[in-house]
């Protein structure tokens, strides 16, 4: 076991991550064996999982930055829906061009990110309180703006905007996966190779020491939330590209799943430690899990319970590991 741990490739990727990849593969095998017709359905389940991965992945990537600073944002689900709803309303009712709607959706995510970040970093409002408030404001604003009507984004059969679904796949080629992979790589580069990432990780670990080194910690803490808002806006686009219709009033469950994917992958809730690769694998696991639960005929209810338990276990494991280190 020790020999494996010392292997340079293992060290680069991270032992925990390797375990997660094994879990992912084992899960898939278990589903194929244990669920009738899972393997036989061909690529259907894989495609469904991918659809889930895209939007959840962007949510998780975003919240990774926030958790890395030792903060939290569980308004991301409702904010994502707000972006999708407002953008959709502009498309359907104001008849604005699709590109503009996409930009609007992303900008709304940014706005929430800026607001949350400012409140937490500069006004020192506890992050969970701002999350609660933003969650509500996002839900309410979306409902007011769209007059509580669900919004649908274009299908592939749409004569003008049919190209929209191409961001998911073109003739079977998984464009979405490529985009997501690129985004994940960019996030990784930001986190490990830029000033922003360095400051975020260091201040998440010991904010005061970083402040006393002459760093503007407020600015960089806020930037993590802005990043999260931006990625939430992008998540909204992928959500509607995959599922077409959004209804006001929902979105909460994705909060927990995004955080679950993040924490499972090795990002510590206490701050300072984050893994983009871990988040990505965590998102795949959660997405595959929910697809498996669906295939088993079990309802969303089991999925919710399972996710809740996963978060508790993952966070507790993180807490104990930290305690042991100290």
């Amino acid at each position: 076991m020790e020999k494996i741990k010392q292997n340079p490739i293992v060290k680069k990727i991270g032992f925990n991550r390797i375990i997660l990849i094994c879990v992912l593969i084992l899960m898939y095998v278990a589903f194929c064996v244990g669920i009738k017709g899972f393997a036989a359905a061909g690529t259907k389940h894989l495609l469904n999982t991918m659809n889930y991965v895209y939007f959840l992945g962007f949510l998780s990537l975003g919240v990774t930055f926030v958790i890395a600073t030792g903060g939290i944002d569980f308004s991301i689900g409702p904010v994502m829906f707000c972006c999708a709803l407002v953008g959709g309303y502009c498309l359907n009712s104001y008849k604005m061009p699709l590109v503009a709607d996409i930009i609007i959706a992303i900008v709304i995510g940014l706005v929430f990110g800026i607001f949350n970040g400012y409140m937490v970093a500069y006004q020192k409002v506890p992050a969970f309180i701002i999350s609660m408030a933003s969650m509500n404001i996002a839900k309410g604003a979306a409902a007011v703006f769209t007059k509580t009507q669900s919004q649908s984004w274009p299908l592939s059969t749409d004569p003008v905007n049919g190209w929209f679904r191409n961001i998911i796949s073109v003739n079977g080629f998984p464009v979405g996966l490529v985009i997501f992979a690129i985004a994940a790589v960019i996030c990784g580069i930001i986190l490990y190779n830029t000033k922003m990432g360095r400051y975020i990780l260091c201040l998440g670990s010991n904010r005061e020491a970083v402040r006393l080194s002459g760093v503007n910690t407020k600015k960089w803490e806020m930037s993590a939330y802005v990043m999260c808002g931006l990625l939430t806006g992008i998540a909204a686009i992928f959500f509607v590209a995959a599922y077409t219709t959004v209804q006001p009033g929902y979105g909460d469950q994705y909060n927990n799943e995004a955080i679950a994917g993040c924490v499972m992958g090795g990002t510590s809730m206490v701050g300072g430690l984050a893994s983009i690769l871990g988040t990505v694998i965590g998102v795949f696991i959660i997405s595959l899990l929910q697809e498996g639960i669906l295939a088993l005929g079990l309802g969303k209810d089991i999925q919710l319970i399972v996710t809740g338990i996963i978060v508790i276990v993952a966070v507790y494991a993180d807490v104990t590991a930290r305690r042991r280190k100290n």
Partner: peptide
């Protein structure tokens, strides 16, 4: 508590004041 970020490397700590 205030001088170093113990979870980070020597390099990350050393360049913190003038990144």
């Amino acid at each position: 508590r205030f001088g170093v970020v113990v979870q980070k490397s020597i390099i990350e700590n050393s360049t913190l004041a003038c990144l």
